[in-house]
Amino acid sequence: MSTPTDAAPAQPGVRKAGEDLLTVTDLHVYYGNIAAVKGVSLSVKQGEIVTLIGSNGAGKSTTLRTISGLLRPRTGTVVFDGKSLVGIPGHKVVGHGICQSPEGRRIFPKMTVEENLELGAFLRNDKAGIAADKERVLDLFPRLKERIAQKAGTMSGGEQQMLAVGRALMGSPKLLLLDEPSMGLAPVLVDLIFDTIRTIRDQGTTVLVVEQNALAALRIGDYAYVLESGHLKQEGVARELLKDDSIVKAYLGG
């Protein structure tokens, strides 16, 4: 066993005990007649970073988009905080406390950084809370503070990614969904983003992150699921998976 760090569970190899914040059971999602997700079950516990890794087309983003209500599952259940989310339209899922930073960032390019952040809080009415969250986001990503009045589309990819994460945090989520936050970023920025994800978790927000960059994801994750062509291939404590031969071979270039 390696030396335990602060991020490792108290007992190496064992998942943290606690209530499920999100439970996905036997999820099947189709695009037309093509199955993208074929029976995925996973859970996210309060205060965890759970990572969902797998190669292109494994069904990671589809799973996330289904949780966010952008897609409807053919069968299966999504239970969040004790309530079923299946059939709830995408724009209402946010109100339940799930905010997503989507794949490819999808910031609003013609709006300023500030307007983007304000849109993240679209459903909220508590002025004080919004101001506090804005403060929090700008503390997490000081770069955004410098760019606050700039049109988001003119920023670099890394800055746009920070904005996408920050915008999702503006919804004050109980569960933050991150889809490929490292996509297209320089390694130094990947480190920065993933360090920040850990900080976000430490501040009390539960995180479910989808990644192709398995190494970065497993390093910060508490628990991990491995998807392969729509099926769940493996799951386990993230640090343990880092040492797993088959994972190393398939995803870590070992």
Binding site: S68, G69, L70, P89, G90, H91, K92, V94, G95, C99, Q100, P102, R106, I107, F108, P109, K110, M111, E115, E118, L119, G120, F122, L123, R167, A168, G171
Partner: peptide
């Protein structure tokens, strides 16, 4: 109006903000 401008730029992203497209 804010919702309109968001939907004009990216419908799915707007939905993720809680906007009824």
């Amino acid at each position: 109006g804010k919702a309109m401008r968001a939907v004009a730029q990216d419908q799915d992203a707007a939905r993720l903000m809680g906007i009824d497209v």
